[in-house]
Design a protein around this nucleic acid. Structure first.
Lengths: 308, 308
DNA sequence: GTGAAAGCGCTAACAT
DNA sequence: ATGTTAGCGCTTTCAC
């Protein structure tokens, strides 16, 4: 009963006599032996751990996604090391450095803080990486942000709105925000209307009085916007309509009932993990794996016709 | 420039000549050398990774807590391996086994699925463990669930309610649920009233018509309950009052405005991590570290006087 | 102050 | 089918 035989039994490698196998298993049970993954990873020069970078776990969209990603990862035999970056580039690079030192098998970025260099560095080191938003340089899977925005804006347009404002926030990474704004802008331009870009942080001071509808770059901020508006006595959707993006669980509550662009979360999580595993197994040779998923408009009651 | 000298420089261990130190640092930079944490952990027979077990990351209370825990952990130099158990004991033990094989330095359970044996096994192996709810046998920190429930019920009582129903759900682990029910029960009994225990899953079929108020064991279910009630045309708080437990971020929204018992999340996360680190450093000799935090009632507009 | 040597617990290649 | 050997990349004595 040498180390290698025990190893063969544990790893399910063939070539072990049934009787030997039984004895090994028995000893393992009686001694309470537990294989040491650290040692295995060292000798294999490969861990079975993913690094999961998320901007803000307190944002339901990301925590829901993180949950799904972790599930798929563990089903495929991978553990998940989670890092909340708070959207801070400094923190992000520190956490990436730590993941690299831990020799994670691959990294998933649910939200990329905007420091383009981080992605470049990861790629330069051949670290398998999947970004859950559009990223030219690496494997990625995202929803078609432009199409999603167009869906929402066309809905607002068809309701009769003419003064539709785009509201952005720091919670959405710049590239994604840009794509959603672009979709919004194209839809407005096509209707011969003028796009207006507003930062959520400034809604307090400069909210355009004549706006009859807002398209907000994510649900969390959309819900906060409804809150803020109603605090000022503006009723939604009677006085003004609000549409969001993501379709977080909360958006479906009767009291919230937010019209929004739904992301296929389940499919997204599944794909992200599958793509990462593929990259890990097939290596650098594999061409870029980039997917764009279709979003769907979910009409609820935060949008309605503009006041007369 | 031997391996040990490099090691001494990296670890900041003294006894290295400034000139040598400079040269080592320079080589590290030019070669792009990155220390291998896996090897370090193997030789030290200790990782710097925490295992974080959470019942449901999609529940905002847990994701908010997870975020805080991860932050404190990383500030203390620990990585966080996250495991979503979905409240399923089978999954839970599988994930714990994986954490054990990874030789995590300690485990934090944000929600314990109810299989008492898991905790026993962990303790038997001297695995540092902190449970974020009351657990006699191990280090733990929780809010005073009984006191919290009493706060909520006394508020309802003072509003004039007499038929107050307790609503439980699978989302809350049994021990916590029991403590909250106990606090509810005591408060009702003290007022000479009869406690009623109802499972959320059964609210559809057997909701007591004469109830004028519900105390729900957590916010997520409380919010769903409000939804369900209003779907049936029952208005909150006009017809019936609802109070929850946790004070998730969502509860503060105007549209939701849920009266609830607030848990000191920030303090909880901080303590959990501090206690775990203490246990890791001081070992088995240290007596049990058990803390009970004080909850606070947050009165919002989901509660009001009962209808005449 | 620096280097040489041993060994953490495994796997993989090679003997037997 | 089983055992032996040689590392994986570090830290930690222990010599020098």
């Amino acid at each position: 009963m040498s180390k290698s035989t025990v190893s063969n039994v544990i790893r399910g490698a063939g070539g072990v006599a049934p009787e030997t196998r039984r004895r090994v298993l028995e000893s393992i049970a009686s001694l309470g032996y537990r294989p040491n993954a650290v040692a295995r990873h060292l000798v294999q020069r490969q861990t079975s751990t993913f690094g999961l970078l998320v901007g803000d776990l307190a944002n339901p969209f990301y925590s829901e996604l993180a949950k799904l990603v972790e599930r798929h990862a563990s089903q495929a035999g991978y553990s998940t090391m989670i890092c909340n970056t708070d959207g801070r580039p400094k923190l992000e690079s520190a956490r990436v450095e730590s993941l690299l030192e831990h020799r994670v098998a691959g990294i998933i970025m649910l939200q990329f803080s905007g420091t383009a260099s981080v992605i470049g560095e990861l790629l330069a080191q051949d670290m398998p990486l999947v970004v859950a938003s559009w990223e030219e340089r690496s494997d990625c899977v995202s929803v078609d942000d432009q199409a999603g925005a167009r869906l929402a804006v066309e809905h607002l347009l068809s309701l009769g709105h003419r003064r539709i404002v785009y509201v952005s926030s720091e919670l959405v990474e710049p590239a994604t925000d840009a794509a959603r704004f672009e979709g919004y802008r194209n839809a407005l331009l096509a209707a011969g209307l003028e796009p207006v870009y507003l930062r959520w942080e400034k809604v307090g001071s400069e909210v355009p009085d004549r706006a009859t509808a807002f398209f907000v770059s994510n649900d969390v901020v959309a819900i906060q916007l409804v809150d803020t508006l109603e605090e000022r006595g503006v009723r939604v959707p009677r006085d003004v309509s609000v549409a969001g993006f993501d379709d977080i669980a909360l958006a479906g509550l009767r009291r919230i009932s937010l019209t929004t662009v739904a992301q296929p979360r389940e499919r997204l999580a599944e794909l992200v993990v599958a793509i990462l595993i593929r990259r890990i197994e097939d290596g650098v040779g594999l061409p870029l794996q980039q997917h764009r998923l279709h979003p769907a408009l979910v009409v609820r009651s935060s949008t309605g016709p503009p006041p007369p």
